[in-house]
Computed example of a mutant assay.
Amino acid sequence: MNLLQKTSIALILSAISLSAAAHGPKVNYTHQGVTAIDMKNTNKVRWVTVEQIRDSLKNTPPITVSFDVDDTVLVSSQCFYYGRNTFSPNSYEYLKNQAFWNYVADGCDRSSIPKESAAALIKMHQERGDQVVFITGRTGHINNDPTRLDVLGTILERTFDVKNMRPVNYTQDTPVAPYLYDKTYYIVKNKSQIHYGDSNDDVLAAREAGIRAIRVIRTPVSTNRPLPINGGYGEEVLIDSSY
């Protein structure tokens, strides 16, 4: 095995070790789908484009739509990579450390890369007059005021030119009873009718809330491994949404 092969394997193992633990109940996939890097059998997936989503809403008055943040609208793995190496190199304990979340909330996302697919989606919805809201599994800053825009909210507002920007909803990866998934309560609270997200929990939370779920493909370089099976629940998957 040459040095390049050893390095590649080391990088893959490192990425796998940084995968986030699942929080909601696990549900077996019901359909054959694909990961962001395995595009076999793509004909089995219910691919959808931004234009097709817009057309599906042509007779629908303005609605509220919700977006997950990490790997859905922003490529932000560098924040979590740094956080783990700094706060808990050998475990996921950093995700329970308020100091880590304060670090993220203080502006780590100034280095996050906005996804082109998210920009196109948000532009389309705003042209329709839809209200855009953001729901993330992150924990907010210890001094976060949920009634005001924080740093992340301001970055999202500026990056995607969000109109009537509302404060970011932080779930802390904790379901609110009687719901099983952490984002369900906030989807219902915001009266969202479409939820976009890259994770299984995003899809399942939307379904738990009784609304339309559209999967966004997780960026292949994400540290959140393993990559989910896009279309694994028969949900619509936004084409070319890994970037």
Rank of each mutant, 00 (worst) to 15 (best):
Gly232Arg: 09
Asn102Glu: 08
Met165Glu: 10
Glu127Leu: 04
Arg207His: 03
Thr35Cys: 00
His141Leu: 09
Gly140Glu: 08
Gln32Val: 01
Leu238Asp: 02
Asp71Met: 13
Gly33Phe: 15
Gln98Lys: 07
Ser111Asp: 14
Pro228Thr: 02
Ser76Met: 07
Asp38Gln: 02
Asn102Lys: 12
Arg128Ile: 02
Thr139Asp: 06
Val221Asp: 01
Asp106Ala: 00
Asn164Trp: 05
Val73Asn: 05
Gln5Pro: 07
Gln131Arg: 12
Ile187Tyr: 10
Gly83Cys: 05
Lys189Met: 12
Val50Asp: 01
Asp68Arg: 08
Asn144Pro: 04
Ser76Gly: 11
Tyr179Gly: 14
Gln172Phe: 10
His125Thr: 10
Ile155Pro: 08
Gly234Arg: 01
Asn97Val: 10
Pro220Glu: 02
Tyr186Met: 14
Val27Lys: 03
Leu18Ala: 04
Ser112Thr: 12
Lys123Ile: 00
Thr136Asn: 15
Ile194Thr: 12
Lys96Cys: 04
Ile187Arg: 15
Ser91His: 07
Val45Trp: 10
Val50His: 02
Val237Tyr: 03
Glu157Ala: 14
Ser88Gln: 06
Ile214His: 06
Gly33Thr: 14
Val104Pro: 10
Arg215Thr: 03
Leu13Asn: 14
Ile187Met: 13
Ile135Tyr: 08
Ala213Thr: 07
Leu95Ala: 03
Tyr185Ser: 11
Ile194Lys: 15
Leu95Gln: 03
Ala36Tyr: 06
Pro167Lys: 08
Cys79Phe: 09
Leu121Asp: 12
Arg110Leu: 11
Ile214Ser: 07
Ala105Leu: 12
Tyr181Lys: 07
Lys6Leu: 11
Leu13Trp: 15
Pro167Ser: 10
Val162Glu: 04
Arg218Phe: 02
Lys189Cys: 12
Gln126Met: 03
Lys96Met: 02
Asn200Gln: 02
Gln52Thr: 07
Thr174Met: 10
Asp106Tyr: 00
Ser222Lys: 00
Leu227Gln: 01
Asn143Arg: 06
Pro25Lys: 07
Val27Gln: 01
Leu121Cys: 12
Phe67Asn: 04
Phe134Met: 13
Pro226Trp: 04
Thr174Arg: 09
Thr184Leu: 10
Pro89Gly: 01
Met1Gln: 01
Ser111Pro: 11
Asp109His: 03
Gly231Glu: 09
Thr7Asp: 13
Ala118Trp: 00
Asp68Gly: 12
Tyr181Trp: 08
Ala99Gly: 13
Thr184Gln: 10
Val133Tyr: 01
Thr139Tyr: 06
Ser77Arg: 07
Ser77Gly: 12
Ser88Asp: 09
Asn41His: 04
Thr223Ile: 02
His23Asp: 00
Ser112Cys: 11
Val48Ile: 13
Leu11Phe: 05
Glu157Trp: 00
Tyr186Glu: 15
Asn59Cys: 11
Asp202Trp: 00
Lys40Gln: 03
Asp201Gln: 01
Gln98Asn: 09
